[in-house]
């Protein structure tokens, strides 16, 4: 067990009841500071719903979520984001009509107030952070392009870059390699590995090759509940996991 200081994300008995159907059902999990945790589960297991609950998109009906020592249960999305939770959606979402650079500026402002944003440009600190993110995501050549013109892979990397710019301490990634070519997937794995350590990352992924590339600890979800937790090897040999996956073709 990680020490109290080392817990980035503490989920305790989290439940959401959609009119009798519990998509997430008494789910508990602790993700340590700087850890990269992979969340596995068959279709409909409740992975996306769990991320909705953590990030404030959906309100839970029971249980709690803590970001370090801060209780963020059922707060408004923008408050949870300001507290330090960044989220990437299954469908990439960036600001299509803004340039790549403007996307990163919006993400990296670190100042939510309308009135305090009534000035021009970004300060030196912000510029330095922006350059770091451009370096990390290798988007230097497309900075002046409208983000809507980027390729699928570039769009995903931009969104990852925005989470880093935002200064998110805990980052939630929902299937970051969905729809990517093998080359793009490879680059994404590298990118996530470089983000590891500076950020605590919780990632949902179906691509097992990708999971092997990045995973340290894996949590398996089934019917909204915690099924197993452990290393890749432990999970692969776990009987309960094998049984749960029988219906959906097993872990490949």
């Amino acid at each position: 067990m990680a020490s109290a200081k080392g817990k980035a994300l503490t989920i305790d008995g989290l439940t959401v009841d959609f009119g009798g159907f519990k998509a997430v059902d008494g789910f508990s999990m602790i993700v340590g500071d700087g850890e990269l945790r992979v969340l596995l589960g068959a279709n409909g297991a409740g992975k996306t719903t769990l991320m909705d609950l953590i990030s404030g998109k959906t309100r839970s009906t029971d249980g709690s979520v803590h970001l370090y020592d801060l209780n963020i249960t059922n707060q408004e999305e923008y408050r949870i984001a300001r507290a330090g939770v960044g989220r990437k959606f299954q469908i990439p979402s960036i600001f299509r009509e803004l340039t790549v650079e403007q996307n990163l500026i919006v993400a990296g402002t670190r100042e939510p107030s309308v009135f305090r944003n009534l000035t021009f440009g970004i300060n030196r600190e912000g510029r330095r952070r922006l350059e770091d993110v451009v370096e990390l995501t290798r988007l230097g050549d497309v900075l002046d392009r409208p983000a809507g013109e980027l390729s699928h892979g570039e769009t995903q990397w931009l969104e990852l870059g925005m989470l880093v710019s935002q200064g998110a301490r805990v980052i939630l990634l929902d299937e970051p390699t969905a729809g990517m070519t093998q080359v793009e997937t490879q680059k994404t794995a590298e990118l996530i590995n470089r983000m590891k350590g500076d950020h605590t990352i919780l990632v949902v992924e179906h691509d097992m090759a990708f999971v092997r590339e990045i995973a340290s600890t894996i949590t398996v979800m089934h019917l909204g509940k915690l099924l197993a937790e452990g290393s890749m090897a432990e999970i692969e040999s776990n009987q309960a996991v094998r049984d749960a996956y029988l219906g959906s073709g097993g872990i490949h």
Binding site: S55, Y78, A81, S93, A107, M162
Partner: peptide, 8 residues
């Protein structure tokens, strides 16, 4: 939504 999840 993206703006919201960036904290705005």
């Amino acid at each position: 939504n993206r703006a919201r999840y960036l904290g705005y």
